[in-house]
């Protein structure tokens, strides 16, 4: 008997991306540059987060024609973003045949209380998280992959670090709790008990977790890997830099060789200007993306 689109194939694709870099691209040409640089997947979108931040307005799912063009142009998996709670955008992305949907805080949320019921879809989902409770709520809703949120479009890695430290710190704390404390812990972090129990037993997250939101340099990527993430999303950091192709390749190599400082020194050398960064506390409160998601 053949069964299609199972839990194992959905979570399994994320397993195959481990150790790799997923890059934001806005057209077929950028997608090919990303593939040539060694990206393990691309995220197809109309505007990179830095431009969404700069231009403002409502950010929505990309034009399907653009996504299809990107799908045709590369052989690696293509991901695309739907607004939080916008299950019709997700239905459309599934119909287009994208390989993963990112239910993303980078777009303007469509629902202020509820996320998409991801169990209903055959296509797998990746979702953002700031802490363990948020991570396990998303997995409970059917996410097959996680990413720390960071603060997209800033070129500032500090939020990504905060969120990774929070998630893995809570995993370590939970691992050391006696079983009678699991239920109260689940209540405190507002996460499903069964998933809390699974993390307590295994000492690891139930799905693959990448870093995202603010990675701009090879050293940023290696920092996130050393903090324990399984791979890295780079959004604006590549195509908003001085030399996208060179920087993309350097970030791929830094993610693979994240523990080898000599290689990191070499790949960080002479790769042109990074994107201009933004100090987090200069961002107006209503424009902070990481707080979107419930």
């Amino acid at each position: 008997m053949v069964t299609m689109s199972t839990e194992l194939t959905k979570k399994g694709l994320a397993q195959q991306l481990k150790g790799g870099v997923i890059m934001d691209v806005i057209n077929a040409e950028q997608a090919r540059i990303a593939e040539d640089a060694g990206a393990v997947a691309v995220m197809a979108l109309e505007r990179v987060p830095a431009d969404i931040r700069a231009q403002g307005g409502v950010a929505r799912m990309s034009d399907p024609a653009l996504i299809e063009e990107i799908i045709r142009s590369v052989t690696i998996p293509v991901m695309a973003k739907a607004r939080i709670g916008h299950f019709v955008e997700a239905q459309i992305l599934e119909a287009l045949g994208v390989d993963y949907i990112d239910e993303s805080e980078v777009l303007t949320p469509a629902d202020e209380r509820y996320h998409i019921n991801k169990h209903e879809f055959k296509v797998p989902f990746v979702c953002g998280c700031k802490d363990l409770g948020e991570a396990l709520r998303r997995v409970g809703e059917g996410a097959s992959m996680l990413r720390t949120k960071g603060e997209a479009g800033t070129g500032n890695v500090v939020e990504a670090v905060r969120h990774a430290r929070s998630v893995y710190g809570e995993v370590r704390r939970l691992q050391n709790l006696p079983q009678e404390e699991w239920m109260s812990y689940a209540k405190d972090i507002q996460a499903p008990y069964e998933l809390v129990a699974e993390v307590a037993r295994t000492g690891s997250l139930p799905v693959v977790n990448f870093a995202a939101g603010g990675v701009a340099t090879p050293a940023d990527a290696a920092l996130m890997m050393q903090l324990g993430v399984d791979g890295v999303f780079v959004g604006s950091g590549i195509f908003k830099s001085g030399n996208p192709s060179t920087r993309a390749k350097a970030i791929v190599e830094a993610t693979t060789h994240y523990q080898d400082a000599h290689i990191l020194a070499r790949v960080s050398s002479g790769i042109g200007e990074p994107m201009v960064g933004i100090e987090i506390n200069t961002i107006p409160r209503e424009q902070v993306m990481a707080v979107r998601g419930w």
Binding site: M1, M4, T9, K10, I71, V123, P124
Partner: peptide, 25 residues
């Protein structure tokens, strides 16, 4: 594409009588 990923059982005599459950991604 990913939507066509699947699981199935395949006979592999070298691995014994029990078929191998295989995940294709």
């Amino acid at each position: 594409r990913q939507l066509d990923s699947f699981e199935t059982d395949i006979p592999v005599p070298q691995m014994g009588e029990e078929p191998v459950h295989a995940v294709f991604i």
